Simulated scan of single mutants.
Amino acid sequence: MKALCLQPLALPDQLADLAVEALIDEADLSPKPGLVDRRGSGAHGDMNLALMHASALSLWPCLRQMAEAAQRHGEIAAPLRAELGRLGREGEAAMLATTAGVNTHRGAIWALGLLVAARALSPLSSDPHTLAARAGRLALIDDPAAPAQDSHGTQVRRRYGAGGAREQAQQGFPAITGHALPQLWRSRAAGASETHARLDALLAIMASLGDTCVLWRAGQQGLDALQQGARAVLDAGGSASLAGRRQLRALDARLLQLNASPGGAADLLAACLFLDKAGSL
């Protein structure tokens, strides 16, 4: 009897697997202030953990196709950017069909799609800072087929001057490379569990990001509460410390009181987890 010989997965399949895994890991991480997690729906009455899982899984074909497109085009240029835009819109439609119209991962499609494509463009280059910069170069290219939208993010940018997901991508994801990844690695090096290290990375994003999801729901008051509360957790020793956990509970309570959900930070945490593992492929 011959032994079963499994062929290694192609890179686009591996990248799609890794991106979906990052989305599920972000959803499962608990306790996340104001966000859907294993405890409940946070500030989202229309979401739950099962819905987040289903949404993440619905994006696998889109993410694989983005990696395939990057391999096929082979360079950062307008044709690849246009195809990524089309695939992203198709992925968003699949997500909304799965969630009955609930916007669970629109920002994550943008961030992870760019990063998946960046990784597929250069299979031998896996440094997180290099990948983020390459994704930023892609994000700077206009997509002429993108429909004009007066989305919540657009309205918030107009009112508050916050850059949001688009600016983060175009700048090479500074909230990830400058804050989340260094904090993730510091917390691990200090002996924190993986859960606490990931929570600390999320808090580092929250402390630095002008989260347009929070601004839409709770205005500048909500953003100030998010940033100051996240800094207080980290300054108290992080989520692994007793003092940090007290601050984390206080931040969660305040965000729920304000009905403020830091969805932008959650999307970037998923992108951070993807970058953290992308080098292992």
Rank of each mutant, 00 (worst) to 15 (best):
K2P: 14
K2H: 15
C5S: 14
P8E: 09
L9P: 00
A10S: 14
P12G: 02
L18R: 13
L23H: 06
E26Y: 08
P31V: 14
K32N: 06
K32D: 08
V36H: 05
R38H: 01
R38C: 12
R39K: 11
D46I: 10
D46Y: 10
M52C: 13
C62H: 06
R64K: 15
A67P: 02
E68L: 14
A69P: 11
Q71A: 14
Q71T: 12
A78H: 09
P79Q: 08
P79N: 10
R81E: 03
R81W: 05
R81H: 05
E83G: 01
E83T: 12
L84N: 03
L87E: 04
A93Q: 15
L96F: 13
A97P: 00
A97R: 13
T98R: 12
G101H: 08
H105F: 09
H105S: 08
G107M: 10
A118C: 07
P123Q: 11
H129M: 03
A133N: 11
R137T: 12
A139T: 09
L140R: 15
Q149V: 12
R158N: 12
R159C: 12
G161K: 09
A162L: 07
G163S: 04
R166G: 03
Q171A: 15
G172N: 12
P174E: 13
I176L: 15
I176R: 07
T177Y: 07
W185Q: 14
R188M: 03
A190M: 10
A190N: 10
R198M: 12
L199V: 10
L202D: 04
L202I: 07
L203R: 01
S208E: 15
G210T: 04
C213M: 02
A218M: 10
G222F: 09
L223R: 02
Q228E: 14
A230M: 06
A236S: 13
G237N: 03
L242K: 02
A243G: 07
A243S: 13
G244W: 02
R246Y: 01
R246Q: 15
L248P: 03
L251Q: 06
A253H: 13
R254K: 15
R254D: 10
L255C: 10
L256M: 13
N259S: 14
D267E: 06
C272G: 02
L273W: 08
L273P: 04
G279C: 12
L281A: 11
